[in-house]
């Protein structure tokens, strides 16, 4: 029987409803796929929303060039299995074209550079809706984001004139040139996502599980030293540690946590007991308290 036996079901029902609304209300939607657990969850929800038909929109990845190789491999395999079109656009191309300038120094990251590449891709393909895996529990400024969030020609978010969202009704009416960011898992928490992955037995990239990795410690956070992507001072000592990642963003701004959670069950119980929020492991939010809100106004996802 399809009864609401766990709290995941109401959230799943809501997300499927939203994804179906996106497909019905927009002409050219796209699912922004990073290879992270949130976008993998979105893909599963989209599969469910349209079964037995295929997902009726492409996946798009904005590749910073600093992604974990495990994530890229996983991304390509998943798209192939689903038989869905995968579009990849590279931040490196935006850098080469002189559209953005690479950051340098200790805290250099390509995370914020993604915005330009994303906006260019939206224009290139004339996407009118981008489905993203953002959740309101991630960060305070996200807590005010709508499920359908209208962006202007420049991808900007005006938090003061957001459309009210009442009951289940989603208003996707827009003018030419505008587009909408759609967030089906807005109301999920990190633990909800993990519990869902566990319950649905969804495959996720291996870096989410504990593994041995060459790392160094800075500002109390653990960074990957497997390659040269994360800037490292000579006096920062590299050591092998048993770690896993809680998010799989750009390698340059995603810190690892010490963990021996080698299975999804162990990850879920670790998250349940954990006392650091997920974004606490992302350096780009820590730059300033208003960091996320500023990036969002500029068109960041």
């Amino acid at each position: 029987m399809n009864k609401d036996t766990s709290h995941i079901n109401p959230l799943e029902n809501e997300a499927i409803y939203i994804i179906r609304e996106v497909a019905a209300q927009f002409e050219k939607p796209v699912l922004l796929f990073s290879g992270g657990k949130d976008s993998i969850t979105l893909v599963r929800l989209a599969q469910k929303a349209f079964w037995p038909a295929k997902i009726p929109f492409p996946l798009m990845h904005i590749d910073t060039g600093h992604n974990f190789p495990e994530t890229i491999e996983f991304r390509d395999r998943l798209a192939k299995e689903l038989g869905v079109e995968l579009i990849v656009r590279n931040v490196q191309d935006s850098i080469d074209a002189g559209k953005v300038k690479e950051e340098s120094g200790r805290y250099a990251s390509r995370n914020s550079l993604q915005t330009t590449t994303l906006l260019d891709a939206i224009e290139e393909f004339k996407f009118d809706a981008c489905i993203g895996g953002a959740r309101r529990d991630e960060e305070k400024a996200r807590a005010k984001e709508r499920i359908f969030s209208v962006r202007d020609d420049f991808g900007q978010w005006d938090e003061k004139s957001q459309r009210p969202e009442l009951f289940d009704m989603l208003n996707g009416d827009i003018e030419l040139g505008q587009n909408v960011r759609c967030f089906p898992i807005s109301n999920w928490t990190e633990l909800d996502v993990w519990s869902y992955i566990q319950k649905e037995e969804i495959e996720i990239p291996s870096i989410y599980f504990a593994h041995k990795r060459k790392t160094f410690v800075r500002d109390g956070m653990i960074w990957s030293a497997e390659d040269d992507i994360v800037f490292r001072d000579e006096d920062e000592v590299v050591e092998e540690r048993l770690v896993r990642f809680r998010t799989v963003g750009d390698m340059s701004c995603t810190a690892a946590v010490l963990s021996d959670a080698v299975s999804i069950d162990k990850v879920v119980s670790e998250i349940r007991d954990s006392s650091i929020s997920e974004r606490g492991a992302r350096i780009d939010d820590k730059r300033s308290e208003a960091a996320m809100e500023k990036r969002k106004q500029q068109g960041y996802f």
């Binding site: 309101r136 807590a143 005010k144 938090e159 003061k160 957001q162 109301n187 928490t189 633990l191």
Partner: peptide, 8 residues
């Protein structure tokens, strides 16, 4: 504005 807060 409306903010959403989660706990369980």
């Amino acid at each position: 504005d409306v903010a959403h807060i989660y706990f369980s």
